[in-house]
Amino acid sequence: MLRAGRKKKDMPSGLFVKCGGCGEMVYWKSAEQLLQICPECGYHFRINAWERIGLHTDEGSFEEVDAQLTSCDPLNFVANKAYSDALESDREKTGLNEAIVCGTCRIEGRPAAFAAMDFRFRGASMGSAVGEKFVRLVELAMEQELPLVTIAASGGARMQESALSLMQMAKTCAALHRLSGRGLPYISVLTHPTTGGVTASWASVGDVILAEPGALIGFAGRRVIEQTINHELPPDFQTAEFLLDHGFLDMIVKRGEIKSTLARLIDYLS
C-alpha cells in the first residue's frame, strides 16, 4: 500500500536510501533512480523543480522565463530569524531565485507553458514572487496560445508576506479565469505535499487535475486537525487516494506516466 511520506526526507543521494513510505533501505535500480520511486513500495520521493522539468518535458525543450524574479521582504518580517536571511540561504542552497520555475517547453512534441514548484525553497510556499511568476506564465500562455501545465507542491501561502501572500491566491485565480475565457486548457498536477493556500487556489481549478500516488493534498494541516478533534487521523487521510475517492481528482498517475498522460490530455483539450 502506498502511503504519504510523513518523514522529512529530501531527495536521495546515495545508492542505498531509506524509503519515506516503507522505511526499507532500498537499492536504486537505474529506472527507479531516475524517477525516484521506491522499488519496494512505490513511494514517490520528493523531487525538485528541475528534476520535474527533466522528467515531464522533452529534453532540451524547456526555456525558462523570469528566472531572476525573486522575493523581497516587504514587511521586514523577523520571527526566530529574519525572512530576508532565510531567502538568501535558500537561494544559496538551491541555486533558485524562487520556489517556482516557469517556462515554455514541449511535452512529447506538444508546445506548452510549464511551471513546477520546488519544495526546497521556503517549503514551496507562495508569496508575491511566486504569484507574479505564475501570472506572467499564464499571460505568456495566452499570448502564445499554449496549454498550461503546473506541477504543484506547497506548504501554502507564505506567512512572512502575510496578506500579500493571501492576495496571490486571488491574483493567480484571476489570471486562470482569463486563460479559461480564451479556451486554453489548464492541467494541474498535484504532488507531495500540496497544502493550504495553494490547494485553495490555482492548484484546484485545473480543467483536469492529476495527482501522484500517495501525495499529501489538503487544506488544513494534519496536526491542526488532530489537535482540533483530539485523536489521530488514519494514515490515508488527505492522500491522493483519499481525494480520488471523494471526487476531487480526475486521476492518479504514476510519476513515469505523467508526461505521456499530459500529452494525451493536451491532444484532447487543444
Partner: peptide, 25 residues
C-alpha cells in the same frame, strides 16, 4: 475555514478555490 475531517472529505480547499476563481470573474 473549518479545519476538520469532514471539511477535508468534502473538499474545503477546492470549495475556497472555486469561490476565489469565480469571484474574479
Amino acid at each position: 475555514a473549518a479545519p476538520s475531517v469532514e471539511a477535508e472529505e468534502r473538499g474545503q480547499a477546492m470549495a475556497i478555490a472555486e469561490n476565489i476563481y469565480t469571484m474574479t470573474g
